[in-house]
Amino acid sequence: MLNNPILINILRFALLVIAQILIFNQLNFFGFINPLVYVLFIYWYPLRENRAFFLLISFFLGFVIDVFSDTMALHALATVTLAYSRPILMRFIFGANYELQGFTFKNATRLQRMTYLLLLIVLQQIIFFSFEILSFGHILLILKKILFTSFVTFIFCVLLSSLFAVENE
């Protein structure tokens, strides 16, 4: 049953949303750090799928989290941008290899995968926090939030992704 990729993705979607809204949105480390772990959905999503559908499902993921966190459409903006720029990031990190048919994450080195995850997270946080406040007067606050939240999100994502390592991709 767990070999069906559609089922896995639906399950992943649901579990990440639940984990994000019920656990990670309420952590509030030091009063402001709430790791945004749902980025793992985009990190894990199969490589060679219909891109338009990937954009739509990412938008939907962000939107569901927005509804639960009362953040208008900030998460949706971040996820849809990530989904759109994922091929660009991957080409940047894995080189031209990634466009070959045989490419999987397994052929990539650990360092490459970590860099890829880190880039996704940083991009997500930059979009999320800049549009959240949207004022140059708060630039230091925004930078502080991006720096610390990215760091904590990265740690949690690495932990989660090694806990639920994907075997068949």
């Binding site: 954009l55 509804v67 009362d70 903006l77 549009f131």
Partner: peptide, 28 residues
Amino acid sequence: FLYAFLALVSLIFTLRSHSYHQSKFFNS
């Protein structure tokens, strides 16, 4: 185009709320 459309929708939602009340239909 799809990306531009979705991003625009999110931006409008977000920016409108800066000046006006929170969205009536999508909230917790």
